[in-house]
């Protein structure tokens, strides 16, 4: 039954959507059939794969950069009062600056380039990662670190076996919210200043008022992100938390 309810909900929605589209009969509210044929059209022309792939590449590049930089800053802030004091005002600043302003400034100062686009996304995401990881670092277990010290663990062993496993839930949380935030920002960045990618396509079809194509690209991208969640994020999380399993 647990699986039936969501299924029921989705099928119900599609039915409602079909009926509404049929009754209103306006190209600005295309039905599921029109959206599917738009997806099919974009796939067979190769455009969907092309733009999807480019957007995915941007998401991945900025995701990795934002995570690495954010984890580094968060760790340093959680460990050192001095670094925390130095960075904290800027963290608050960058947490509250509108994403759009960062994007504009990056394009103005960096030109309409790939690097400027990626940096804009990274700047938008780093503060959230840093805040989450600072919390994680502050909650580190001191007794285990002492244990590692007494048994002469190397710095790398301490990081790998004592610190990282404790930060793992925080990294997963930052990564989860990071991925969903980043792909939305990447679309905006593409919308404003790139000539390829899903965001650029949405821009084009927005000017044409082609709602079916807009929905086609959105659905395709959501599907890809869902696949990443199911095929990569969840299995990794299960693997990393297997020690939490209850005694058999």
């Amino acid at each position: 039954m647990r699986f039936l309810y969501p299924l029921f909900s989705i099928v119900g929605f599609i039915l409602l959507w079909t009926i509404a589209a049929f009754l209103i009969a306006d190209p600005l509210l295309p039905g599921p059939v029109e959206v599917c044929s738009a997806i099919y059209r974009e796939i067979s022309s190769g455009a969907l794969w092309h733009h999807l792939f480019i957007t995915l590449w941007r998401v991945l590049a900025s995701f990795i950069m934002a995570m690495v930089i954010g984890i580094g800053i968060g760790l340093a802030m959680g460990r050192s009062h001095m670094i925390n004091g130095l960075f904290d005002p800027w963290l608050v600043f960058f947490l509250n600056i509108p994403a759009l302003v960062v994007i504009f400034l990056c394009y103005i100062w960096g030109g309409l380039t790939e690097a400027a686009a990626i940096i804009a996304v990274v700047i938008n995401k780093v503060p959230n990662v840093a805040v989450t990881l600072r919390e994680g670092t502050r909650s580190l277990n001191y007794e285990l670190e002492e244990m590692g010290q007494s048994f002469r663990y190397t710095q790398w062993q301490k990081f790998q076996h004592i610190i990282l496993p404790q930060l793992q839930p925080f990294i997963v949380a930052a990564g989860r919210s990071g991925l969903s935030l980043i792909w939305k920002i990447v679309l905006v960045v593409e919308f404003i200043g790139r000539s390829d990618g899903v965001g650029f396509q949405l821009h084009t079809y927005f000017q044409l008022f082609d709602v079916a194509a807009i929905l086609a690209y959105s659905l395709a991208f959501i599907a890809v992100m869902l696949l990443i969640e199911i095929l990569i994020v969840q299995p990794w999380e299960r693997y990393a938390t297997r020690w939490r399993a209850e005694p058999a």
Partner: peptide, 13 residues
């Protein structure tokens, strides 16, 4: 070689 008052094992290893 230290045996702490609590076991202090790494739960994830």
């Amino acid at each position: 070689g230290m045996v702490f008052q609590e076991p202090r094992l790494l739960p994830w290893r």
